[in-house]
Design a protein around this nucleic acid. Structure first.
Length: 424
RNA sequence: GGAGAGAUGGGUGAGUGGCUGAAACCAACAGUUUGCUAAACUGUCGUACCUAUAACGGGUACCGGGGGUUCGAAUCCCCCUCUCUCCGCCA
């Protein structure tokens, strides 16, 4: 959520930046917002003046009572009653205005960083870097879903039976590979200074609200209405919420956390080749990295997080590319996002395996995640996060790219974790 | 699931209707003293919003959350949430 004060101060700039994100009716919405805000403050002032008066009179009554001046006390009480009538209307108006402002603010996305390219769709993203060679496959090479069946390592049918589509069962070396990747990712993150955390897989409404899953993305999450919980769509939610309602010291920065979790997404409306095999699941595994940084240093941290992801992809010997997302393709909450995609050779397409973003103060505003700056004032911190990494598409790429007539070769860095060098 | 107790500022913890935005202690921060450290002493020490401005100024709200009683509520009443203890169940 954007800060109303900043909008008030930089109105023109805000409207322009929202344009980069292709936000509709930015001009009109921001103007309404500012009008509402103006009115709200006016009403608030009036109301508070009355309340101040009320407080003074209440004290007077106390004094009169003690001094036994009943008449004066009664007279003051009547004055109070009159004032109270006035304040009721103002009170109502104030809370209405506040609600309207809140709703409007919630509907406005984060402002893009100045380096975000204009654009509408994924087509307009900028390829920043491409690393590794696209493998040439042998004639008998097949997409990963066939390989999963051939080696009996991921069973989609079985998952259908137990739960439904998008909940595969990993078997044998497939299960072991999952475990190996999780451990590998966590170890790598820990080496790079991210503290390991094992978070809850369900969160309450306040947490989902604070990181921005609610209210607008409600349909994306599995809900447990009986208890008011939501299955997490990413570990970002619990990891970032560790710091909800927190005031940090400058010396605490940067805070770096990593955590493995299973992620649950309803993915309503997805279809076709995008969802085939491991490309898109309702339940999947992911190691997430989160950073809470000083506003002056957050882009430095973003760069470090990028480096971290690059490092693990290289160790996995996967060809990948980095995209700088354009305004139109960026998430609602992000100020700057880099997507990582690995090449999946049999499908002949790039698969998104990580997304690293700086949210600046957009999340921390709702989280009330602040720090005391050098002047001793509280100020919003910056939050960042990224996947490092999401498993299924990594597995898809590994299986497809490393397939040989003899079986699927495991990259060297992973062998100590899997305990085997080949899936056959 | 049953019974009971509780929720106050960074922590411990006082406070049962007005003098309490909140004692005291601890921690923290700044300073004095000091050869250094320690100790001692002095001061500062919640958050948000509004307003103001020459100003370290003024106001409102907040003692788990929501509602109520009252001229006035941390304090009384109602509802909710959470925590703890005991019992039951259980990986």
């Amino acid at each position: 959520m954007l800060e109303i004060n900043k909008i008030r101060l930089n109105k023109e700039n805000v409207i322009e930046l929202l344009g980069v994100k292709n936000f509709k009716d930015a001009d009109q919405k921001i103007n309404t917002l500012i009008d509402l805000d103006e009115k709200k403050r006016q009403v608030q002032k009036q109301l508070e003046d009355i309340k101040a008066d009320l407080n003074v009179k209440a004290k007077e009554i106390g004094k009169f009572m003690m001094q036994g001046e009943k008449d004066l006390a009664e007279k003051t009480k009547q004055e109070v009653a009159a004032l109270k009538e006035n304040s009721k209307d103002l009170e109502k108006e104030l809370s209405e205005k506040e609600k309207e402002i809140e709703e409007l603010l919630l509907s406005i996305p984060n402002l893009p960083h100045s380096s975000v390219p204009k654009g509408k769709t994924a087509e307009d993203n900028i390829v920043e870097l491409m690393e590794g060679e696209i493998p040439k496959l042998w004639e008998g090479a097949t997409p990963h879903w066939d390989l999963c069946a051939k080696y009996d390592i991921v069973d989609f049918e079985l998952g259908n039976k137990i739960t439904g589509s998008g909940f595969p069962v990993y078997k044998g070396k497939g299960a072991k590979l999952q475990r190996a990747l999780i451990n590998f990712f966590l170890d790598e993150a820990t080496k790079n200074g991210f503290d390991e955390v094992q978070p809850p897989l369900m969160v309450n409404e306040a947490s989902a609200m604070a990181t921005g899953q609610l209210p607008d993305k409600e349909g994306q999450m599995y809900a447990i209405p009986l208890d008011g919980f939501y299955m997490i769509p990413t570990a970002e939610v619990p990891l970032t919420n560790i710091y909800r309602d927190t005031i940090l010291q400058e010396k605490d920065f940067p805070i770096k956390k990593c955590g493995y979790s299973q992620c649950f997404r309803r993915e309503a409306g997805s279809y076709g080749k995008d969802v085939r095999g491991l490309n898109r699941l309702h339940q999947f595994d992911k190691v997430e990295i989160v950073c809470i940084a000083h506003p002056d240093k957050s882009y430095e941290q973003l760069e470090k997080m990028k480096q971290h992801v690059m490092g693990i992809l290289s160790k996995l010997e996967l060809p990948y590319r980095i995209l700088r997302l354009c305004g139109g393709d960026m998430s609602f909450t992000s100020a700057l996002t880099f997507d990582f995609e690995t090449y999946s050779a049999a499908q002949e397409r790039w698969l998104e395996v990580s997304s690293v973003s700086n949210f600046e103060t957009f999340q921390s505003n709702r989280l009330k995640l602040r720090f005391k700056n050098q002047e001793g004032k509280t100020q919003l911190a910056h939050t960042l996060n990224g996947s490092a990494l999401a498993l299924p598409r990594i597995v898809a790429s590994l299986l497809e790219n490393n397939q040989t007539p003899q079986g699927i070769r495991i990259p060297k860095a992973l062998v100590p974790y899997t305990g085997f060098e080949i899936i056959d």
